[in-house]
Simulated scan of single mutants.
Amino acid sequence: MSDDLTPKPLSDIPLAGVIGMPIAHSRSPQLHGHWLKRYGIRGHYVPLPVMPEHLAEVLRVLPRAGFVGANVTIPHKEAILALADFVTDRAALIGAANTLIFRPDGKIHADNTDGYGFIANIRQSAPEWQPDAGPAAIIGAGGAARAVVASLLDSGVKEIRITNRTRIRAEQIKAEFGARLVVYDWAQAGNMLDGAATVVNATSLGMEGKHPLRVPLDALSPDSLVTDLVYAPLMTPLLIEAQHRGCKIVDGLGMLLHQAAPGFERWFGRRPEIDEDLRRAVLA
């Protein structure tokens, strides 16, 4: 990499990390650590627990401490936009950033690679997937859902059906992304699946320690592709039931892996591979 976004570390050992609170559960250090070891790169990637009130101060200090960039997770993905010097169009559209590059001139460049990771995961796991095969149905209207909506529209999906327990949040996404979105009441979420070619759970429902996802799947077609952004457990109840109904399923771990690749390439100068060795390392 040779453009002006390529970080130049203050020392021979570039540093990166993931900023969040809490952060101990993050699998990103295992993920990036695996790549650093695989490619023999003298760098480090560390968890950075940061309270919201300290975020701006920490961001000013990190580049001076040898950091070339960072990932950003809950609860900072929206707040980071106001603190960055440059925000990509896709991060601005989604309203959140997950990847920071600390430029040589000290400026902070904010991007969002979640949508890229979502689509790359589907294309790797289900190469036969066709975005224009029929409507997509998205359950949830949080930050992850916004990234999914943006990436599906960009991929050529003609209609996106969306539902959320708080309908106003789904309406807000429709207002921002346009007429290709159709909002369904939460009580009608099962009906939303009728004729849907792609079905996405973009909520935390079904995650370990969370409430289950209670959306009836009676209308789900065996021709549908079903994916869940939750990856703990890897096989969520939604994916198990969809597989039982004959659907092609894609777990959520791949999205985590693929969204990390652009940042790693910028920070450490090597485009990493996403393969089974990586999956095993992150799940270990």
Rank of each mutant, 00 (worst) to 15 (best):
R245L: 12
I80A: 04
K174G: 09
V182C: 08
D105R: 00
V182E: 08
L93P: 02
I101Q: 00
M207E: 10
A110H: 03
L213K: 10
I138E: 03
A126D: 14
A150Q: 08
V72K: 01
N191Q: 15
I119D: 04
A126F: 11
K158N: 13
A126P: 12
A97Y: 02
P216Q: 15
A120F: 00
R42V: 00
G142M: 11
L205S: 00
V46K: 04
A56S: 14
S26Y: 02
V183G: 05
P7V: 10
L31D: 02
P212S: 09
L217A: 12
S11L: 11
D185M: 04
R165D: 02
I13R: 14
A70W: 00
R146E: 04
A92S: 14
G115N: 07
E53S: 12
V250P: 09
P135Q: 07
L59E: 06
G263C: 01
A145V: 11
H32K: 05
L239Y: 11
I108K: 00
R103M: 02
M192D: 05
A16K: 00
Q130D: 15
L234R: 13
R167D: 07
A281L: 09
A260Q: 01
D132L: 01
D132P: 07
G43P: 05
T163P: 01
A189Y: 08
L193A: 06
A242R: 11
A175N: 14
R64K: 10
A65C: 06
G140S: 07
G115A: 09
K8V: 15
I168K: 10
N164D: 07
L10Q: 05
D89I: 11
M51R: 15
R60A: 12
L36R: 04
A110V: 07
S155N: 05
G190P: 04
W129N: 11
K8G: 07
P29N: 07
V50R: 03
P237I: 15
A179D: 14
D218A: 15
F118L: 09
I173H: 05
P131H: 05
D194G: 06
G95E: 12
A141I: 13
I119E: 07
I173G: 05
F177A: 13
A120P: 06
A82L: 08
G190F: 13
P63H: 01
K158P: 02
N71A: 06
P29I: 09
P131V: 06
V199C: 06
A179Y: 05
G246T: 07
R27T: 05
R64F: 00
R123I: 11
V87P: 02
S11I: 06
A145N: 07
G95R: 13
G263P: 01
E171D: 15
T113Q: 02
R42Q: 09
T73K: 03
A126E: 12
Q243G: 14
G209W: 10
H258N: 11
